[in-house]
Design a protein around this nucleic acid. Structure first.
Lengths: 149, 149
DNA sequence: CTAGGTGCTACAGCGACTGGAGCTTCAAGG
DNA sequence: CCTTGAAGCTCCAGTCGCTGTAGCACCTAG
């Protein structure tokens, strides 16, 4: 049972030290034992759990979804319908986002293709932004906002 | 020059009252004149500007990008290279995001397709999350995190 | 013995809003 | 004229998932 410092865990997982402490704070990771000098000492299982978390985060799962997934991972005898349902919901969400982003991409490309340069008063980019009517309609069926550039 | 209340502007633009005040606070919208009773009184140009802002937000431009775009829209004689460049950068960003989301989608679908139900200990979803090696490699070339489900 | 690398806690900040508390003002109906 | 309810006002806290900083303590190598 060799102990690993927080820095070691960070190096192994590619997760920042602060982020690890943050996960402890919000209860995703247990509070590990401490050394005499009050430093966190992790064991292998903690690293595994963090790998799970990071992986799920990379796949876009929310902290709350991960909390549920971890809860299930801790109970290997339960049926896995719920885990599948969470993944399924997330997939639907990703699909919706992709559709929206593709619409944005099309609109941006259209704006850029139509602007042959010149001055602002004739800039198609500015013009389209000013006038909703010059835009393809369906970009504005407000789904959740696209994260900014 | 008929005055419009903040609620009227909200109704016309589909933007929430608080958001309008927020845009004023961060300097995207000018501070309008006030009535005797201290209520904001907007004019048509303010509504137009807000429409521009909302439209750009819908297209995923950041507040800072919009600030620049508005700055340019206010100077119609300037060349529009910069506006085009902002849109171009944003397009590239959107493209990168789409690529990443498609990779996530593929991974999620693979996870779900391989899990035939059953119990957690054999759940492919949990398994893949636990073990990086069972995942298609390129999801983890850390671009910016995908927004959570 | 000392330097600097690592760890600790506590808190502020990001972006782009959103919501609430607790107040004032306004417009319409009786 | 009075009341009532909607709409406005300011100020501040919360969202999500971290990230950074200040100001310490500790630990290890030279």
């Amino acid at each position: 049972m060799q102990a690993i410092t927080i820095g070691g865990v960070a190096r192994e997982t590619g997760c920042k030290v602060q982020t690890i402490r943050y996960y402890e704070q919000i209860g995703l990771l247990r509070a590990p034992d401490r050394s005499e000098g009050n430093q966190r000492l992790y064991v292998r299982a903690d690293v595994d759990r963090l790998v799970f978390i990071r992986h799920a985060r990379d796949l876009g799962f929310s902290i709350e979804a991960i909390r549920e997934l971890l809860h299930m991972a801790d109970r290997p005898d339960m049926p896995c319908d719920e885990a599948d349902a969470i993944a399924q919901r997330h997939l639907e969400d990703v699909d919706a986002r992709i559709a929206r982003m593709l619409a944005l991409k099309a609109e941006l490309e259209r704006m850029l293709a139509q602007c042959a340069g010149g001055v602002v008063s004739h800039c198609r980019v500015i013009e389209v932004l000013s006038d909703h009517g010059k835009c393809l309609a369906d970009v504005h069926t407000r789904g959740d906002a696209v994260p900014a550039s």
